[in-house]
């Protein structure tokens, strides 16, 4: 394939990766921003979203779209509730002490993953997309249109839906009382408490909301990929990379970094092997934390 179309296709695929990553990482970033909690179980909430989507879609008959829409609603709600409960039962009692919460969320990671193994089983399962039309891209290569120049309607939908969700989240955080309360808590926990904000409830809500975003991302991607109890590792690692490069707790930085990391995942693999690309990305994260802990796009020091 010529270089031009190759790059174009990689970018298009990169957009899908970036979209899903943006949602997932936003959840992680929000939790860190508001609660100062590094949630190592975040990838498992993503996995739970996909697994629940499969349960819902396979139990609701009829057209694939019905199951999919039901999953879009049910999966984030269930996952959000599980996460909020975990916050209430475990993290709250640790008083959100950073190192203790990391250890606790590592424990949570195993519990959720192994719980999925028991209920969902060890084998990957597919969820049918509500629609999936192959769309030719009119790009002439030499004299003839060749194979491989395409995208699908569902991939475009994922990108569009993500943009819509992100706008929704932005509105929620900037225009609603819940958003205001969250931001107030983020800025200064003690003062917020003094002003009568029920910080503990805000924390549970935030933790649940962050997990729900990961679940939502998973429902969107599961018709393209598959649900599998071990699928939480990659989104966790990539979200970490995104949140750190974007600056811990900076939502705007997170989005910019998600776009860069998602796109480059597609584009770098045109030039290098993906394993090398991942090595470079993880080392970059380590170096950013060592030499520029505010992230590449964060302004203020931590």
């Amino acid at each position: 394939m010529d270089f031009g179309p190759q790059l174009f296709l990689a970018s298009l695929d990169g957009m899908v990766t970036a979209a899903v990553l943006a949602l997932t990482a936003l959840g992680l970033s929000l939790v860190f921003g508001v609660m100062r909690v590094v949630n190592v179980a975040h990838g498992e909430f993503f996995m739970l979203g996909a697994v629940i989507a499969w349960f819902v879609a396979s139990n609701i008959g009829g057209h694939a779209a019905i199951g999919f829409i039901a999953a879009l609603i049910i999966a984030p709600l269930v996952v959000g509730a599980i996460a909020a409960a975990a916050d209430w039962i475990v993290l709250k009692r640790l008083d959100y002490e950073p190192e203790a919460t990391i250890v606790a969320t590592i424990g949570l990671l195993y519990i959720l993953q192994q719980g999925a193994l028991v209920t969902f089983g060890p084998v990957a399962q597919a969820v049918e997309p509500p629609f999936n039309k192959r769309i030719e891209i009119p790009w002439f290569e030499g004299a003839n249109v060749g194979w491989g120049l395409f995208t699908t309607s569902y991939k475009l939908f994922v990108i569009g839906a993500t943009i819509a969700i992100l706008i929704g989240v932005w509105l929620l955080l900037s225009r609603t009382k819940i958003g205001l309360v969250m931001r107030a808590t983020q800025l200064d926990r003690e003062t917020a408490q003094a002003f009568g904000i029920p910080v503990e409830k805000v924390y549970a809500l935030t933790f649940g909301f962050g997990a729900a975003l990961a679940a939502l991302a998973a429902v969107l991607i599961v018709p393209i990929q598959q649900a599998d109890y071990l699928m939480g590792g990659d989104p966790l690692l990539l979200s970490f990379i995104v949140v750190i490069i974007g600056g811990l707790g900076s939502l705007r930085g997170t989005l910019v970094a998600a776009l860069i990391i998602g796109m480059s995942d597609g584009i770098i693999s045109v030039f290098f092997t993906p394993t090398l690309a991942k090595i470079i990305a993880t080392l970059a994260v380590a170096m950013v934390l060592v030499f520029r802990p505010q992230g590449l796009f964060g302004a203020k020091a931590q």
Binding site: M1, P5, Q6, L9, A10, D13, G14, V16, T17, V123, A124, A126, E141, G146, G148, I224, Q225, Q226, D228, L230, M231, G233, D234, G266, S269, V270, P274
Partner: peptide, 30 residues
């Protein structure tokens, strides 16, 4: 461990007569 594959397929040369594929792992259907 890869989950998405189209970006690799773009490396298939145009003069390929036969595509030989073998994959393992949870993402084979994808």
């Amino acid at each position: 461990t890869e989950k998405s594959f189209t970006k690799y397929f773009t490396q298939i040369p145009r003069d390929t007569e036969v595509l030989y594929h073998v994959m393992v792992g949870p993402a084979v259907l994808t």
